[in-house]
């Protein structure tokens, strides 16, 4: 359940930015989670509700955008969509894929008041 500590980090970052803007409340938080980040969006949503209580983000809505993963084959340089870590190259079948997109988990934007 590392989503718990990641979500605590998310709220820390959000509060830091809100304070810098002299805001007193965070009304919405938008984040991106890659499909290969190892993070379950449902667990983040659950943790967000619990961890945001008593913080500037108390009551804020959380929007999670899923980012589909993209890999590049080390053998033939083909770029291909990846469903999971076990996917091979769609062109040559090699498993040596560099993950280009899909491992991110980031706080993108938020609404403050």
């Amino acid at each position: 359940m590392h989503e718990l500590s990641l979500t605590q980090g998310l709220i820390e970052i959000a509060e830091e930015h809100a304070r810098r803007e002299n805001a007193t409340v965070i009304t919405s938080v938008t984040m991106e989670i890659g499909t290969l980040s190892g993070v379950m969006p449902e667990a983040v949503e659950f943790a967000f509700e619990a961890c945001s209580q008593g913080t500037l983000a108390d009551g804020a809505t959380l929007e999670i955008r899923r980012i589909p993963a993209l890999g590049r084959c080390q053998q033939c340089s083909q770029e291909c969509a990846m469903e999971n870590h076990l996917d091979g190259c769609s062109a040559c079948g090699s498993y040596a894929l560099d993950i280009l997109i899909g491992q991110e988990m980031a706080l993108i934007e938020m609404e403050i008041d």
Binding site: E109, E111, I112
Partner: peptide
């Protein structure tokens, strides 16, 4: 400590784009 003086705040959207693992 939090600042204790009041400002006029307008609701607004800000870009953050910070990785959750940035601190780690």
């Amino acid at each position: 400590p939090e600042h204790d003086h009041k400002h006029d705040h307008a609701s607004r959207k800000i870009r953050v784009e910070e990785n959750l693992l940035a601190k780690n």
